[in-house]
Amino acid sequence: METLLPTLLTIITAATPLLYAALGEMVTEKSGVLNLGVEGMMLVGAVVAFAAMHATGSASVAILAGLLAGAALSSIFAVLVLGFQSSQVATGLALTIFGIGLSALLGQGLVGVAYNGLPKLPIPFLSEIPFLGPLLFDHDILVYGSFVAVPLVAWFLARTRPGLVLRAVGNSHDAAHAIGYPVLRIRFLAILFGGAMAGIAGAYLSLAYSPLWIENMSAGRGWIALALVVFATWRPWRVLAGAYLFGGITILQLHAQAIGVGVPPQVMSMLPYVATIVVLVLISRDQNKIKLNAPGCIGKPFHPTA
């Protein structure tokens, strides 16, 4: 019990960025667009949020800046993919390569600066409940946000008209277009949402998870988020489960390194990446399951006059 609570709390911090990024990417993919640029958007979100924190000292401005930076980067992707009919895979890769370079450039003067992290906002009374209080009701704003985001996205996709239209566009853009839905506009918005969420994920990394800026600090989390969407078979609640599973694996290997289990630290650090592969294999093995759940038009370009 003594170590359980701190362990669970660190799992939450490790899972939060994955949750934001994967949830955003899931909505983008639900509209029929595969954006492989999550890693790049996260990094730019991280560096811009950190720079805004450095300049203004305001956490809310910093988070907003990260969100906007992620959305801005995703809009480049959206214009290329939707306007210029470019390959989604190639453009997403370009976005990641560009984002890695851009974030390193923007972060030049920020290496070595450090902050205290985001302030905790304990919820009165609830945070005083033993165990559950500190576990659920004593976090920073972004962790609360991630708790709220999952049911919101689930509700949006399953219960609202715009959510259903978005899924229709992702499942058959030709049919959606024939009915008269603005396919490209909906996809543009879905891509922006994915970018904004990746930006927040990045902001969480540089403001809360390890409150400093290091080049390439996302360390593949953007790609793990992409794998999580497949793992979750495009369902929000499973994204939540997946993010916490991977948060758990990350923390587990850190704890094992700290205790010193006789395995070299580099080998322990491989664990999240290897686990991603294992999970991907387990889920993808059943082709029908993927076909049933994957958006029908994912990755396919749409040209209205074609």
Binding site: L80, F84, T91, A94, Q108
Partner: peptide, 26 residues
Amino acid sequence: LPLAVTGVFQGMLLFFLLACDVLIHY
């Protein structure tokens, strides 16, 4: 100049290329 400029250049080149490739088909 920071070394990262190289990465930005490379990424931009690929972006512009993907945009210009629309001219092949349209």
